[in-house]
């Protein structure tokens, strides 16, 4: 028993030694060849701007903040996306189980269509619809006061720095309120409709598995 533990310890030490040797050799060779490496760049200014960030981010901010903004962007798509997918999935699921043959076949076609195409294709198709088919920013589609839909995305009234803001065209862009970019919208619509199709089938399966009565 004791001997087994000793052998295990020795093997572990050997592996640790090999790993240390690898790291040490690499570091000294990199230094010898004048190649700078390490993680200190995380604390240096990023030097680039972000197209989209839920928190304030300037090019002078540290690089790690850009990673944080990326993480927050992921959550900004994932959370509303999950909610939308569940709602849409339940709706489609009830549609597939409906007694109405028209609703049943329509929902069935939609779900099967979505499930049989790869996710990447969904995203590309949505992005194409949003950036190729919509009007340019100057000629934005303006269905209601404060709503602008264009190649630059959707602008809508939102709580901003100066209180409740109504978006207004200004120069090239649209100022005030909140803006959802086409990249964000394509991702949100594509991901949630794709996930919704799977939720529909899960729901249908679950209800079908219940014994009648």
């Amino acid at each position: 028993m004791r001997r087994a533990a000793l052998v295990q310890g020795l093997v572990l030490a050997l592996i640790a030694l090999l790993l240390w040797l690898l790291a040490d050799t690499t570091a000294s060779h990199l230094a010898q060849r004048g190649i700078r490496s390490g993680f200190d760049f995380l604390l240096e200014p990023a030097g680039f701007a972000l197209g989209e960030s839920p928190m304030a981010f300037e090019p002078a901010d540290a690089t790690w903040r850009a990673f944080l903004a990326g993480l927050l962007n992921t959550l900004r798509v994932a959370l509303p996306g999950a909610l939308l997918a569940v709602l849409l999935g339940i709706l489609l699921g009830f549609g597939r189980l409906s007694d109405n043959p028209a609703a049943r076949s329509l929902c069935g076609t939609v779900v099967e269509g979505i499930r049989n195409l790869p996710l990447l294709l969904h995203l590309l198709a949505w992005y194409f619809i949003l950036t190729d088919l919509l009007p340019t920013t100057e000629a934005a589609f303006h269905p209601a006061p404060g709503l602008y839909l264009s190649k630059s995305g959707l602008a809508l009234p939102w709580w901003g720095d100066t209180g409740w803001e109504i978006p207004e065209p200004a120069g090239f862009g649209i100022e005030g309120g909140a803006r959802l970019t086409p990249e964000y919208l394509a991702l949100l619509i594509g991901l949630s409709s794709y996930a919704a199709a799977y939720i529909t089938e899960t729901l249908r399966g679950a209800i079908g598995a219940l014994p009648p009565g």
Binding site: G47, F48, A49, L50, G51, E58, P59, A60, G173, T181
Partner: peptide, 18 residues
């Protein structure tokens, strides 16, 4: 990408990178 951010900061012209 970095030059664009530099120019935008130096000139005080806000531009949005895509």
């Amino acid at each position: 990408e970095k030059n664009l951010a530099d120019y935008s900061r130096a000139q005080g012209i806000k531009m949005k990178p895509v």
